[in-house]
């Protein structure tokens, strides 16, 4: 376990603290990471990649100094290693133009508006991670305790 990374990117430290706390129950199965900028995220993903860890889910703010969240999602989507990463925008201020860009070119999977509530956030994260695990992991049983049991069990049952 701990083969997959869940990465949260936001220039505001308080937001990172809050998000990581909301999804803390996943820490037993996933590497929970936080980055305060796109540059830091990029570096982090590369390092983990060298260690064979994959980016399963990214929760990304859009409006940050320097590089913007949507641009990074597009970048991840164009990279073979991270094409399958589930991509979620967690932002209060992506305009229509950027959101369309995120969907069309960034392979955006979900958009959560700030302020969020922890249950919905957790629901989205579990749903997205379940999808990721179903598509990328053979040993589904390991994740039964933290992800969507029903979907995982169905998949296990079908594969026989």
């Amino acid at each position: 376990m701990e083969d997959y990374i869940v990465l949260c990117i936001d220039d505001e430290r308080e937001i990172l603290d809050a998000v990581l706390q909301d999804i803390d129950s996943l820490s037993s199965h996933f590497i929970l990471e936080a980055a305060e900028s796109v540059a830091e995220a990029r570096e982090l993903v590369e390092e983990y990649s060298l260690a064979g860890k994959k980016l399963a889910l990214v929760l990304c703010d859009h409006l940050m100094p320097e590089e913007k969240g949507v641009d990074y999602l597009v970048e991840l989507n164009q990279n073979d290693e991270t094409r399958n990463t589930r991509k979620v925008l967690l932002t209060g201020q992506a305009g229509l133009e950027q959101t369309v860009d995120a969907v069309n070119r960034g392979g955006l999977d979900y958009y959560i508006a700030k302020p969020w509530d922890s249950e919905s956030l957790m629901q989205v994260v579990i749903d997205q991670l379940t999808t990721y695990i179903l598509r990328n992991e053979e040993n589904l049983m390991d994740y039964i305790s933290v992800l969507d049991q029903e979907r995982l069990l169905n998949a296990i049952h079908e594969s026989g």
Partner: peptide, 17 residues
């Protein structure tokens, strides 16, 4: 309004915790 969003989100999450 956008600028208020982040601190308000953080406070909301924090108080719930």
């Amino acid at each position: 309004a956008h600028e208020l969003n982040n601190p308000v989100s953080a406070i909301l999450r924090g108080t719930e915790y």
